[in-house]
């Protein structure tokens, strides 16, 4: 029973940062913007959130500061690609590198320090239910907000006019432009949303999941997020499922040793990346399937006047 509780509650917590960043990236990619700078934006969010929390003592201020800085960074990406028509891949890498540099500068004086983590939400009698309580109802508020975000993203993309516009722009920005839609503005908005969510995801890592700041703590999660959109073939529920799957894989590292299995710890640390590579190959095997599901203009330079 304890094992089950550990796996379920641990997966929920481990997937939270991935979910925030992945839902944001999904919205940006749906509008045709392949933002590869997620890693840098998550790192900056983690550093900024940690510093803001340390200074203000408020978790809300930490998340807010992380979201704002994430959005600002992503808007630089939007400007490069939408105004200066730079290559999306190169621009994303530029923001990623800039963000990693920024995160190390912001967090310099806080290296190795800790803060009080986010408290578990008091759900009254729900938390006391045997088995289900410890599994689902002894989590912090961001875990529940990340679940709300899944449904909100699904609703936005599939049930609102704005969602339809975003998807139309992602399929063909030229046609959308011809229809009089504000392609650049909406794409910039989607990218900014993605940046803010990546910032929050990063801040969750440094202020709740492991409440400390260490340079390089995002450790490739931003890239796993980009990979998640491919696994999920740009469908909300599949992306969310992928995030939980990876959350559970990252638990392996902790649990295998706890159970006394003698495997090199480095192999367990490498596992999420190995699984990502294998899954990418399996899912991408059929190029037609990928092409049918991916936003048609994803990654292409905007050619509007």
């Amino acid at each position: 029973m304890d094992v089950l509780i550990f796996i379920v509650s641990g997966t929920l917590a481990a997937a939270t940062a991935l979910l925030f960043a992945a839902m944001g990236e999904l919205v940006a990619e749906k509008s045709g913007m392949l933002n590869l700078g997620i890693e840098g934006m998550m790192a900056t969010g983690a550093a900024m959130g940690f510093v803001a929390l340390s200074v203000s003592g408020s978790h809300s201020v930490g998340f807010l500061a992380a979201a704002v800085l994430g959005a600002v960074l992503s808007l630089i990406y939007a400007m490069l690609t939408l105004v200066f028509r730079a290559n999306q891949v190169a621009s994303g890498l530029a923001i990623g590198i800039l963000g990693l540099g920024l995160s190390s500068a912001i967090g310099k004086n806080y290296e190795g320090k800790t803060v009080t983590g986010l408290e578990e939400l008091d759900l009254g009698p729900l938390s006391d239910i045997p088995l289900l309580g410890p599994m689902f109802f002894q989590q912090d508020v961001m875990v529940y907000l990340s679940i709300v975000l899944i449904f909100a993203t699904w609703y936005l993309l599939n049930r609102t006019k704005l969602g339809l516009i975003i998807r139309a722009i992602g399929e063909s920005p030229e046609s959308a432009h011809a229809l009089g839609l504000k392609v650049r503005l909406i794409r910039a908005g989607c990218v900014a949303f993605g940046g803010a969510m990546a910032g929050i995801g990063g801040a969750y890592m440094s202020t709740a999941y492991t409440p400390l700041w260490a340079e390089g703590m995002i450790a490739g999660r931003g890239w796993i997020v980009v990979a998640l959109t491919v696994f999920g073939t740009w469908i909300v529920k599949r992306v969310a499922f992928g995030a939980y799957l990876f959350g559970s894989i990252s638990l392996l590292e902790l649990s295998i040793q706890a159970f006394g299995v003698n495997v090199p710890s480095q192999l367990m640390s490498a596992m999420p990346y190995i699984v990502t590579i294998v899954m990418l190959a399996v899912i991408s095997r059929n190029p037609v399937f990928i092409r049918l599901n991916s936003p048609a203009s994803l990654g292409a330079t905007l050619k509007l006047n």
Partner: peptide, 23 residues
């Protein structure tokens, strides 16, 4: 052979190489 995005794969392989080195 599998159409797997080289940007993501080359990055993931870097993380694997780092762990291999540590080992």
């Amino acid at each position: 052979q599998f159409n797997a995005n080289e940007i993501l794969v080359t990055f993931m392989l870097t993380s694997v190489a780092l762990q291999l080195l540590y080992y």
